[in-house]
């Protein structure tokens, strides 16, 4: 696939970087409330402005940061908090394995740096970009750096001015991410086995959410969908043709 793309005239690195950043605008806007919400909740849960900003800069994974905050608030052993964050972020293992197939033309250092910025959106849009032609390091970093720098700034802003949001519920802040993720799920509806995978993951994650509890339903539900796809896939032939 990339062989054919390589023979075409390639845009420059800067153009690629800017194009990537442009593609990152929707998710940057969509995630902004959460970036600030995290900062606000962090301070309310006893973190300093500096600690809240540090967490966004070092972890850069919204859902897991919020789970971490919830646990900071309770009297829970530190290793258990770290384990919960690991559990929420475990889905990145799947992204990493999947996206790694598109990055064979990157250097080792580029991969080591690039994977730090691997988020749900980065993965999804990276896959799309790779299918459209070529996923360059410049494009990937344009997308990732925009999202990252805004995310860190939002934590600082949210932590500093967080108490100024009058009514987060009325602004729908608690439900913005599910809307965004639904849009992304719909964006993949052209893929083979999309409906059975979505159905299996929806049912399993919901059941797991009530039976097992919050961090784990993500990994459990995801594994159910992935396993179903593997079972239903025609073996021998290439899938998706």
């Amino acid at each position: 696939m990339t062989v054919a793309a390589g023979t075409h005239q390639r845009p420059g690195r800067l153009a690629d970087f800017i194009d990537g950043a442009r593609r990152g605008i929707p998710v940057t806007v969509a995630s902004a409330p959460f970036g600030m919400l995290f900062g606000t909740l962090a301070v309310q849960n006893g973190l300093s402005v500096g600690e809240a900003t540090l967490m966004s800069a070092m972890v850069f994974a919204g859902a897991s940061q919020l789970v971490g905050l919830e646990l900071f608030g309770q009297k829970i052993a530190p290793w258990l908090i770290v384990l919960s964050i690991f559990a929420v972020n475990f889905r990145h293992v799947l992204y990493s394995a999947a996206l790694g197939r598109r990055l064979r033309h990157w250097s080792g250092l580029q991969r080591a740096v690039g994977f730090f910025f691997l988020t749900d959106a980065q993965y999804a849009d990276g896959e799309k970009q790779a299918l459209a032609g070529r996923l360059t390091f410049s494009w990937y970093m344009g997308y990732g750096l925009l999202l990252y720098l805004c995310w860190v700034a939002e934590a600082a802003i949210g932590a500093t001015f967080g108490n100024l949001i009058p009514d987060p519920y009325a602004l729908g802040l608690d439900f913005m991410l599910p809307i965004y993720f639904l849009g992304m799920v719909m964006g993949f509806r052209g893929r083979p086995l999309w409906l059975p995978v979505v159905g299996a993951s929806a049912v399993t994650s919901t059941v797991a959410y009530y039976l097992v509890g919050s961090p784990w339903h993500v990994s459990i539900g995801a594994v159910a969908g992935v396993l179903l796809a593997a079972v239903l896939a025609p073996s021998g032939r290439r899938a998706g043709l």
């Binding site: 993949f188 893929r191 083979p192 999309w194 979505v198 796809a229």
Partner: peptide, 17 residues
């Protein structure tokens, strides 16, 4: 095929519950 199913599977778990 499993890896191709990853994005839809994971993102669904962030919506359904």
């Amino acid at each position: 095929a499993g890896l191709d199913a990853v994005p839809a599977a994971v993102l669904t778990t962030l919506v359904a519950p």
